[in-house]
Design a protein around this nucleic acid. Structure first.
Lengths: 223, 223
DNA sequence: TCTTAATCGATATAATTCTATCGATAAAAC
DNA sequence: GTTTTATCGATAGAATTATATCGATTAAGA
């Protein structure tokens, strides 16, 4: 039997958590079923898009009534690998690191920060949200012992590459990078950049167009 | 003379800040010129992609030597509207709000946080990075007086919609949302979501595939 | 019970986005 | 000075992604 390779676009992958948020809200409100049409109303794209996205998770709906919400939640979570919580190391106990540590919801998204590291001796030994900040040198040993796969980079752009190198040497398989720097990683290691500036770029450009449109009349604007 | 409407894809818009980072690095290192080929080496996409992206900013290169780096920086910044710094209001003085306030680099990206607001009486009056936390009620008056266009939402999902409503009523034109909630905004107002969970979804799925591939041999994996 | 309306699931079409090709041009090598 | 090589700029083509259409199915109303 040949393998059916499921092609999942990055765009679809990014929309799935959006659905998940809404679905969990509805689930809390004891709603049982929802149709793609109804779900699409929450977003600025159509119901066909929603249906196609849900399809990749293996969800199955019923005509006229739609999908069972609890099924959808389970399917999406399983598909994203959020059902089995993954342990993660966080490097950088600055403001961003604290913010990430404080973001309790990560548990719901399959992420559990088990340890925090920093280079700064002043920070080492202090506690943030009940987690002790440890020196980066301790990472390799702990990673091996705890079988941690995910590393979160929340340091400055200058320090980022060095941190990633340590992570990779420690056996980390996936790096979630918050530093505004292009990182180099060996083949086989997953790198995902959570760049704020990308999002800001879209906002800025739209705003620029909006403001230009107002001052000089009839200036064309993309989107 | 008909207007030449420049179609800029969201993808291109998101790559521009990536180029900017690298270019500013090179500029600091006193490099004068760079080719698309050389620039593309820093990323996991090709030189043609880079050239097409730079094209939209109006940059012009020279055969054999490439583009003048200082020109590129200026072009990208102008295109994104990052040359004229925009003032912004930040709502939410929690961990994320603090992290954003501490992110000094925003100035380089055309963003200047001028005031911080919160609902919590315990936080009002305290100072974060030299900025006094003010009650949300003061926003409307200040927005009008200071001609602020951008509002940053760094509150919980539950409080987000309410905050946005106040922002819109205050005359804010663009909302940068960090709350994991789908927000409703009136036509003509710009909304950009900086969702961490989207980025995490991509990472999780890749990691899930990687781990599955290792345990069960020959399991197909998207991407 | 029969008709109507809403929705799914599959397929087909359109739009967008990315990649390849080719001549023109400018610097470097010979 | 001529050839070679690297690059741009433009155009064409491929791949991907989004949207529309249509029959099948199921619940609700006449």
């Amino acid at each position: 039997m040949p393998h059916t390779v499921i092609e999942v676009s990055r765009s679809t992958l990014k929309r799935l958590p959006l659905y998940l948020h809404v679905l969990e809200d509805l689930h809390r409100q004891k709603q049982e079923y929802i149709s793609c049409t109804a779900l699409a109303l929450k977003f600025d794209f159509g119901s066909i898009q929603v249906r196609k996205d849900l399809e990749v998770t293996g969800a199955e709906g019923t005509a006229k009534i739609g999908f069972r919400i609890s099924d959808l939640i389970r399917n999406i979570k399983t598909f994203l690998g959020w059902h089995n919580v993954q342990d993660a190391f966080l490097v950088g106990a600055g403001n961003l690191g604290k913010a990430l540590l404080g973001y309790r919801d990560f548990d719901l998204y399959g992420l559990n920060i088990v340890a925090v590291f920093d280079k700064d001796p002043a920070k080492i030994g202090t506690r943030i949200f009940d987690k002790e900040v440890m020196p980066v040198e301790k990472m390799p040993g702990l990673a091996a012992r705890m079988h941690v796969n995910i590393g979160i980079v929340a340091v400055s752009a200058i320090a980022a590459q060095e941190v990633v190198n340590v992570m990779v040497a420690s056996g980390i398989r996936a790096v979630w990078n918050f530093a505004p720097a292009p990182l180099e990683i060996p083949q086989g290691i997953i790198l995902e950049n959570a760049r704020l500036t990308q999002s800001l770029a879209v906002l800025s450009n739209k705003l620029k167009c909006l403001l230009e449109e107002e001052t000089k009349e009839s200036v064309p604007c993309p989107m």
